[in-house]
Amino acid sequence: MMKRLMISLFALSLMSGCGQGGNGEQSAASTNPQAQAGNASGNTEQGAQADAASDTNAASAVMAPDPDAILRTSMQARNGVGLDRLDQDSLQIACSNAEDRAGDQAGKLREAAMAAIEFPEDGNYLGDWKKGEAIAQNGRGMQYSDDPDDPNGGNCYACHELAAGEVAYGTMGPSLRNYGQRGQSEAMLKYTWGKIWNPHAYMVCSHMPRFGEAGILTPDQIRHVMALLLDPASPVNKAE
């Protein structure tokens, strides 16, 4: 049967990830992006002291498990979803820990995430909120049970409260009710777009998917989601 897959000594720097912690995402309705960014960097110093305390002594760890290798023996490709899906990038490796911290790599990862955001060339950030609502409701996309020709959904309702009247919303992320009250300043458009494109630009090791960076949603789809959030006519910004 399957012999346990072990590797003798595993580079522990990855395991002891710690550092720039998840900064509080202040309630959506009342923050402006500058304050947000300021907070994020302020945290790095606190993160640094925490690193030193939690570093485990490399010698004491004898056999560390290798989840990547275990998964590759435990899974099979189906409908075009192959083992390549298991390939981790540096962000995933850095964030794969109980603390959800990226340790000394946090700053580098955040800058890389911010730099790679592709803002709309024509400067047009807002699409059709009705299409945005459909994207937010659609939980499918990129699963081996999905039709690859169908557009991916955003599944925003999985984690966020959005439109008034939609009872079936999740509570993993903050409520986005009345997000439109933040207005449509250049800074707000850039922050909201960047947050959807790659949340790690603002909070490294966030559990929100990188909708733009990972190619889950197209720029057009993100424009529609932006409208759902910011268009005054959107049910997100309506009382009832």
Partner: peptide
């Protein structure tokens, strides 16, 4: 280790959904 392992296009691990209390996905 598998529980906290993040992979795939959505960067999810088991912990994404199962490490906090009183949380829900949709309802």
């Amino acid at each position: 280790a598998l529980f906290y392992h993040r992979a795939g296009p959505y960067d999810f691990s088991c912990a994404t959904c199962h490490r906090q209390s009183d949380k829900r996905i949709r309802l």
